[in-house]
């Protein structure tokens, strides 16, 4: 295949993959919507146990939120560097994104561990089952994103900016931004509205 045909082929692949991945993100929205709906339905089912009012530490959650938001921003910077094919810059910004992502995860795991320790684990009530599952599923997606980022950093170091690497990095950035979008709703609906008297 000559170079022109190769470029056209790569563009076609990128277009299809980009759209296909977006569709997958849409399905993930529906998944989270189902978990949100369940959380909303079970919010009051505290089974004589603690509710959001007693459990949620808003300053702590604000810190988590700002960390994740910043990581979404640095991911954008990393993509800008990718577009310009500045290898060192791209790797640095992705590394920063990963550190922020790991920090978010650490904060969240710490929060979960604390809740479990004080007897507010996910077995305690319907409310807590729903809370842990909704927030935890988001956390699992973060883990997936971080693993993916690690692999992409490795590929970037080994192969440089091949068409495949750039394509996969653009998908990863969509994924990472999407996770922050979901977090907007978790922050607002679960935490902010959660401390309000119902």
């Amino acid at each position: 295949m000559n170079n022109e045909a190769l470029i056209l082929h790569e563009q076609t692949v990128h277009t299809k993959t980009n759209f296909g991945f977006w569709l997958y993100v849409m399905t993930d929205c529906i998944l989270f919507a189902s978990l949100f709906a369940t959380y909303a339905a079970l919010r009051g089912n505290t089974a004589d146990g603690p509710s959001g009012q007693t459990l949620f530490d808003l300053p702590y959650v604000l810190a988590e939120t700002l960390v994740l938001l910043t990581s979404s921003f640095t991911c954008g910077l990393a993509i800008l560097a990718t577009n310009r094919q500045h290898k060192t810059q791209a790797i640095s910004w992705f590394a920063v994104t990963m550190v922020l992502g790991l920090s978010f995860l650490a904060l969240e795991v710490n929060e979960f561990a604390h809740l479990a320790q004080i007897g507010a684990g996910w077995q305690r009530s319907g409310f807590l089952s729903a809370y842990f599952t909704l927030v935890g599923t988001h956390g699992l997606h973060i883990v997936v994103g971080l693993v993916w980022m690690t692999i992409m950093l490795y590929q970037l170091l080994q192969r440089g900016f091949t068409a495949g690497v750039r394509r996969r990095l653009s998908l990863l950035s969509i994924f990472w931004h999407f996770l922050d979008v979901i977090w907007i709703f978790i922050f607002s609906i679960v935490y902010l509205l959660g401390v309000l008297p119902s």
């Binding site: 079970l42 505290t46 089974a47 009530s125 807590l128 729903a130």
Partner: peptide
């Protein structure tokens, strides 16, 4: 306790 008959 999503759908159990107790525990909320």
């Amino acid at each position: 306790h999503f759908f159990t008959s107790g525990g909320g």
